[in-house]
Design a protein around this nucleic acid. Structure first.
Length: 325
DNA sequence: AGCCAGGTAATCC
DNA sequence: GGATTACATGGC
């Protein structure tokens, strides 16, 4: 795969709204998130790629004086509307306009939340993926292990995405729905090893080409997304909670079910209804945020994809650039 | 060797 | 309706 070099095009200053705490490290980097190659993090700096329309952008992020500073690197004509789109995308992706005060005051009354709050206060939900991209992630999480999810993600991005270099880092970048529409279900199955998900993924490009952002406004998103064959309640809830950033919504699965059962019931497992009811009782309107804090705290001391040390970036770059598939 | 993974749809009664 | 089962694949 060719390595695309991105040039510096802009610097965005993104002030964090409100006056409450802001945990920049755990907003930009989530200890529970698996490795995709789409982002890299050190304690001081994060790098992430975005597809914005026709543009491929690399972004370097850091935090100073209550402001997230984003250096933008691109592969082509950078226009004022790209600046607007990226600004909106970054503010939404990292919840820079969201206030955590209402959640915090609820959480302070719940013993199970004492440690997560102490460690993570001011953390926002992060979702740099757009609707299409998070749908692909949620699909690849269905009924399989993280190890296989990681392999399938790597295959899809290596075969159909891009490889870019900017600001000293090499990263993968997503394909767009239009680009993925060119790929057959047989390729998804045989080359990308998606198994039965191959047919579902083939349904995604058409849906997202036909439903761009606004026309899903006002719809019941959890229902709307389930119009796609292969997308059920779990995948739709993940998509909807990220699309709407509704702090009350969370997709419950075998993984977070066990984590939440342990934290709120002190039991190894519990039924999904019982967990949902209890979370809503404890954190009315903010159960999704509460689940986020409990899950990230679970992984805080043993992250799925640990932070990089600055002197290991060379090895990171080589690993991505030498991938042959 | 089987069982099970950060589910879903089809097919039973 | 709710309970069961096939669906791909790979790791333990």
């Amino acid at each position: 795969m060719t390595l695309l070099h991105l040039d510096h095009a802009d610097t965005l200053q993104l002030p964090v709204a409100g006056v409450g705490p802001f945990d920049s490290l755990h907003t930009l980097w989530k200890p529970s998130h698996y490795a995709t190659g789409l982002e890299a993090h050190t304690r001081q700096s994060s790098w992430r790629t975005f597809r914005v329309g026709d543009l491929t952008a690399g972004v370097q992020l850091r935090y100073e004086d209550r402001t997230v500073i984003a250096d933008i690197y691109t592969d082509g004509d950078y226009k004022p509307f790209h600046r607007e789109q990226l600004t909106a995308r970054l503010r939404a992706s990292y919840g820079l306009d969201e206030d955590t005060a209402a959640f915090t005051s609820l959480a302070e009354r719940v013993p199970a939340m004492r440690e997560p709050l102490a460690a993570l206060a001011g953390m926002r939900q992060s979702c740099p993926e757009d609707h299409f991209e998070i749908a692909v992630i949620a699909l690849l999480l269905q009924n399989t292990t993280i190890s296989r999810t990681t392999t399938m993600t790597r295959n899809l991005l290596a075969h159909h995405g891009k490889l870019v270099h900017f600001d000293g880092i090499t990263l993968r970048a997503w394909f767009t729905p239009a680009e993925l529409a060119e790929v057959t279900a047989e390729t998804f199955k045989e080359a990308d090893r998606l198994g039965y998900r191959a047919n579902t993924l083939s349904n995604f490009p058409a849906f997202f080409v036909n439903h761009t952002g606004e026309d899903l406004q006002g719809e019941n998103l959890v229902e709307a997304f389930q119009e796609i064959k292969g997308v059920g309640p779990y995948t739709a809830a993940v998509m909807a909670s990220h699309a709407s950033r509704d702090p009350a919504v969370f997709g419950i699965d075998v993984w977070n079910r066990k984590i939440l059962a342990r934290r709120i019931f002190d039991a190894p497992d519990a039924g999904p209804e019982a967990i949902t009811r209890r979370m809503n009782d404890l954190f009315p309107g903010h159960a999704g945020t509460a689940a986020l804090y409990l899950v990230e705290h679970e992984y805080l001391n043993d992250p799925v994809a640990p932070l990089l040390e600055p002197d290991s970036i060379g090895a990171w770059n080589s690993a991505l650039e030498n991938t042959t598939t």
